[in-house]
Design a protein around this nucleic acid. Structure first.
Lengths: 340, 340
DNA sequence: TGCTTGGCTGTAAACGTTTTCAAATCTGCA
DNA sequence: TGCAGATTTGAAAACGTTTACAGCCAAGCA
């Protein structure tokens, strides 16, 4: 038996295809009697409406594409989980775009959106992968886009962010309040907006405290575990070691802690470690990692809400939502050692 | 200017829509001259073929749906990343189905596949979410399915697995070889095949060593961090504490380690901890976690390969691929304490 | 020259829905 | 009973491709 189409169901239940469609999409407008007939045929035939026809007719895919640099990262994973749940509630599916940092892959996903494979795009990377074709009225042509985590400097797309500058400043101020003066920064990739912003926060906190920046204490990382290890190794070689290290991600902080403990340093008695993100493992480290909490669930929710509003035409693009971070003081930070 | 369709491009370049389609899908069969004309029009018009029409015509969505219990889990995230990369190479997109353990969501994704929203399904959950409609010739109706991680007891679907029984046995044998006799097991959800299998391995290793199973040392967890903490707390209350704890996941092991260290126990001098999975954080714990390595990348690759072969009709369903695990001996396991 | 072959292209059908429009039926009220 | 309006239904068009089939033309060959 071949797969049944709407026409078959129509024939079986003795109505027109239009009525079958109505019964399924908008049961309220068909009579009780017809509805029963149709539903019976639908169930007995095991009919599932093909999405292809519907997509073509309505020009909607029911998909949202999420473009992320790395889904393996706890921050991204946490956000996309929230997104998926909310999207499903609203009847949308999530197309996963893991770019692994490659621009070409970002473009690939952008073109998927443009070919109708998705109705909207959630951008967590820091490039603008869409071809802003010069012949055309630019943004109007694009599907709705919401940008989060890494702020893309383009007018007219909605954003969901935390205040990275304040977040980093808060982190550093926490260390300053413990008496630290030599505070290292382990940064993410320096071409990411988040790193630039967090570095701004770091600098502003130090300058407010009248402390000059020591270039030796600024290390470039890539947000990953290994780069945290490498950074710490580098810092340990310094003649004048830092008394506290502010890592721009928890992963790097965890890497740093591991190197420190490997080398017999006590945290926080010898060196304080501060992270950023508050991934689920942070509180389980020994010592538990002091960090800046990002509200992943809320970020995901806000992203999808902004996008859905645009898809429903209820809202203009270009909106900006800022979510609060929280300083989580745990055991990996402590007073500056007295003997130094 | 409205969005251009294939007919517009055809008109602009003075050929038929068929030729435009051929130029894009199968450039080899059109003449050099036409190809140039068409490509020029395509580029100048910024034309991207709509997927809707193509999908309808070819009855293919170009999507693969991945059904997972929780994408936030490092194991799943690692696998899906590999899947996504391979799928994209083959021209497929990944639809993310994060079920959060809910059967209804699994069914939802199954029905998406049946309505043509995906050409194939990768199942990492442990239910069979498809309605095996009694009226119909069962499996033939379903899209190709590959099952991994949690083995679903259904004939005729392909599988990619590691040998959980041997993996767990290897883990326990490692502990036995260090002289441990009181070895606790912190299990996953007891209705998951992986937990059942690992528990089998645990029992078989102990029984081979002539050690009787102590029910007090068997704790039920859920593979998550918190359940590892809870399990450890429970074990610490015991009058006769275990000298080693085998956790069925790294997350639970990390939770257990945290509780242990919080309470002043030394690992492995007082208690040895063993995990399963080898997530990226395992080697960065202090002490580094001894565990069973799962080849996530290879699992993902194998899944997609099996599925693609079925989609291409090159291979029958029902194949079984087994991938090797590896014992990673690190610092969290050591000889049984002499003083006990 | 006439015929065949092969390369390239065009015509038109088909994929499976949704939705507009109009027609048919029913309801309630005068 | 007659009519306005509401409710329910059907016919048909449209969505944008791909592809089977047929046709055309040039080239090669006898």
């Amino acid at each position: 038996m071949a797969k049944l189409g709407i026409k078959d169901i129509a024939a079986i239940s003795g109505v027109s295809p239009a009525t079958v469609s109505r019964t399924l999409r908008n049961p309220g407008i068909v009579s009780e009697e017809t509805r029963k007939k149709v539903m019976k045929a639908v169930e007995e035939g095991g009919y599932t409406p093909s999405r292809f026809g519907a997509n073509l007719r309505t020009q909607k895919s029911g998909n949202i594409i999420v473009v992320m640099p790395d889904i393996t990262n706890q921050v991204n994973a946490g956000i996309i989980r929230a997104i998926e749940r909310q999207a499903q509630k609203a009847g949308y599916s999530i197309l996963l775009g893991d770019t692994q940092g490659l621009i070409e892959r970002e473009k690939h996903y952008a073109s998927m959106a443009q070919s109708g494979q998705a109705d909207g795009v959630l951008l967590f990377t820091y490039h603008m992968p869409f071809n802003l074709n010069h012949n055309q009225p630019v943004l109007k042509q694009l599907p709705p886009i919401v940008n989060s985590c890494e702020s893309i400097p383009i007018e007219g797309i909605s954003k969901v962010m935390i205040d990275n500058v304040s977040g980093a400043r808060t982190a550093v101020e926490h260390l300053l309040s413990l008496g630290h003066k030599r505070i290292a920064a382990v940064m993410g990739p320096t071409d990411t907006p988040s790193t630039v912003e967090r570095f701004d926060g770091y600098k502003s906190a130090l300058s407010n405290a009248g402390i000059e920046i020591d270039e030796q204490l600024i290390i470039r990382g890539d947000y990953g575990l290994d780069s945290g290890m490498g950074a710490m190794e580098q810092l340990l070689k310094l003649r004048m070691r830092p008394t506290a290290v502010f890592c721009f991600s928890d992963d790097m902080a965890i890497g740093a802690m591991s190197v420190l403990q490997e080398n017999g340093f006590r945290i926080p008695q010898d060196i304080s470690i501060m992270g950023f993100d508050d991934i689920r493992y942070a509180r389980l480290m020994t010592p538990a990692l002091t960090t800046i909490h990002q509200p992943l669930e809320e970020i995901g929710k806000a992203c999808i809400e902004l996008l859905l509003e645009q898809l429903d035409g209820k809202s203009e693009p270009g909106r900006y939502v800022e979510l609060p971070f929280t300083l989580m003081v745990r055991q990996s930070t402590g007073p500056v050692p007295v003997d130094r």
